[in-house]
């Protein structure tokens, strides 16, 4: 497609504005993280009066950042792994089988995306408590409780995306495997999953991020041993002052792995979305 001159102008200006919009807050985050506390408490300066690595040192002792980080990693990885695994089975069933209740299931799962978290927060807490009393398995305040909660948050999207992905994989491949005597699990494992790798990557990163950032449920369902970053980072501001510089340095450190992971895998998310939505 030939681009007229005006479009090149519009593009230049548009990209500049979008870049500014994106970069300025990021710049503020990075520079604030190397400012001394006195700078942060005073009128905003574009450049720190002194560049100091101190916030990066202090942030570990002001709050139990390392523990929170480990908790978040455990919870998010667990939620992502189970979410993907469970979604694979469900998506395979929906994509490859016609059975009674199929549409009901699809619609119900999708409609859970609409549920306001605030509606089922307290009942869910009660259910976890009841399960705990009945079986001795502690769900509220434990990693596993959070994993279960979060895996279902990403499940609808994961299933939906994998279904569209599987739909784009020719059934002939499955049939070839059947003729070779493979069962559904083997077919899923040997044929469908390898062909759907990008979709799986995309779903994994989505599920991970969903769990990584959740605040509302974490605020009630965590205790001292399972506090995640989303809750733990708030401790920088519940003390005698708000340690803005440490908030920013800690946020930066804990965001980098996620951002890098996301950027590395975003291409699969694009492919997944293409396979899904665009058809």
């Amino acid at each position: 497609m030939r681009e007229p001159r005006w479009f090149q102008w519009v593009r230049g200006v548009g990209l500049c504005l979008l870049t500014l919009f994106t970069v300025i807050p990021l710049y503020v985050m990075v520079t604030t993280s190397v400012k001394p506390l006195s700078d942060v408490q005073d009128t905003f300066q574009w450049w720190p009066s002194v560049l100091t690595p101190q916030p990066y040192v202090d942030m570990w002792s002001t709050v139990r950042l390392a523990d929170y980080f480990v908790n978040s990693v455990v919870v998010s990885l667990g939620a992502a792994a189970f979410s993907v695994l469970i979604a694979l089975f469900a998506a395979y069933a929906i994509s490859r089988y016609r059975f009674r209740g199929r549409d009901v299931f699809r619609f119900t799962v999708l409609s859970t995306q609409m549920f306001p978290g605030i509606l089922f927060l307290l009942p869910l807490y009660l259910i976890y408590a009841t399960v705990g009393q009945a079986t001795g398995i502690v769900l509220q305040g434990s990693h596993i409780g959070l994993i279960i909660t979060y895996l279902t948050f990403s499940l609808p999207f994961s299933i939906w995306m994998l279904v569209s992905y599987f739909d784009s994989i020719p059934v002939d491949l499955d049939e070839a495997a059947f003729i070779d005597g493979a069962g559904p699990v083997q077919t899923l494992w040997r044929v469908v999953i390898p062909a759907a790798k990008p979709g799986i990557a995309a779903v994994s990163i989505y599920a991970f991020m969903t769990a990584w950032g959740e605040t509302l449920f974490a605020s009630i369902m965590t205790d001292a041993d399972s506090t995640t970053l989303a809750i733990g980072l708030r401790e920088y501001s519940t003390q005698s002052t708000v340690y803005w510089n440490e908030v920013m340095s800690a946020s930066l450190v804990v965001s980098i792995p996620v951002v890098l992971g996301f950027l590395a895998l975003q291409r699969y998310l694009v492919q997944g979305l293409t396979a899904g939505a665009v058809k």
Partner: peptide, 11 residues
């Protein structure tokens, strides 16, 4: 452009 989406909400 994708970075803000990848940042945790809290951040």
């Amino acid at each position: 452009f994708l970075v803000p989406y990848a940042l945790p909400i809290y951040t």
